[in-house]
Simulated scan of single mutants.
Amino acid sequence: MARLAGKVAFITGAAGGIGRAVCRRYIEEGARIVAADISADSVEETLAEAEAGDNGLGLVCDITDPDSVKAGIARTIERFGRLDTLCNIAGGSSRADGRVTEAPDEEFWRVIKLDLYGTFLCCKYAIPEIARAGGGSVINMSSMAALMALTERDCYTAAKGGVASMTRSMAVEYAPDRIRVNAIAPGLVLTPRAERIMAEREEIRLLADIHLLGPCQPIDIAEMAVYLAAEESRVVTGQVLSVDSGVTIHGGAQ
């Protein structure tokens, strides 16, 4: 039997490399999905690649806008009648990030709003529906930046560290509702966007070199997302699970 049969998942950042891989694997495992992102065309491409058919719904959703998030969750319930899994994948750093003494204030607030507040909002409006369904799984996206000294990324580090901390507190708060809350902390993932950055920035290419088993692929993150949504992880909660090719244990030794 498919591992996610009967489950409904709301997936943000669905148009990105990791989001597309998660959507595809969830469909393969029998889930119905809502693929949410800020680009309508890209969301439809994601659904087409996943061969979602009637088991997929594409939504334009700005995770930093409460009304947009509320509308997206409401549309999910209207279409599929329930919500079992929330995958908070949307987020990302930019080239404006840097040391705390040099990074622009606006970049700090941009990444806090997108990565941390966006995760907060999606949890705020999705968790009550997951509770009404009898429980389920919240999967947040932290980063290796929350677990190791990754220089020149102080804004992003702050946001992803906040996601990790919020994951732990929510795991305790919503355990009575049978809701598991975990986070994935990816290493360098070879999405098209990451590959462009590697070509431009020497320090990112050097970071790739210290991944013990080589850089990650989007499918590696998607497989962990399947596990965390499936019943086999029924007693896993409050964890920040590294899918990082060993960089967080090896990188600090450099």
Results as ranks from 00 to 15, higher is better:
A2M: 15
V8E: 01
A9M: 00
I11C: 02
I11W: 00
G13V: 05
G13F: 07
G16N: 10
I18N: 06
I18M: 13
R20I: 13
R20Q: 15
A21R: 05
A21C: 10
C23E: 02
E28C: 12
A31D: 08
R32L: 07
D37K: 08
D37L: 07
I38R: 14
S42I: 12
E45W: 06
E49W: 09
A50T: 10
E51Y: 11
A52M: 14
D54P: 14
G56K: 00
G56F: 01
G58A: 03
V60S: 00
D62H: 15
D62A: 10
P66R: 09
V69T: 01
V69P: 00
R82L: 04
D84G: 05
S93W: 13
S93E: 10
D97L: 00
G98N: 10
R99D: 15
T101P: 09
A103V: 15
D105P: 10
F108I: 11
R110D: 12
L114E: 13
L116M: 08
Y117P: 02
T119E: 02
F120C: 08
C123S: 12
C123F: 08
C123V: 07
P128F: 02
S137L: 01
S137P: 01
N140R: 03
N140D: 06
S142W: 10
L147W: 09
L150F: 15
C155N: 11
Y156L: 06
T157E: 15
A158K: 07
K160L: 07
G162D: 05
V163A: 02
T167P: 05
S169N: 12
M170Q: 09
A171I: 05
V172H: 14
D177G: 14
V181S: 00
N182L: 07
N182P: 02
A183R: 09
G187R: 00
V189M: 07
L190S: 11
E195D: 08
E195W: 02
I197W: 14
M198T: 05
A199C: 01
E202I: 03
A208L: 04
D209F: 13
C216T: 11
Q217L: 15
D220P: 08
I221K: 09
E223T: 13
M224L: 14
M224T: 07
Y227Q: 09
E232P: 10
E232W: 13
S233I: 01
Q239A: 10
V243T: 04
S245A: 15
G246V: 03
G246Q: 10
T248Q: 04
G252K: 08
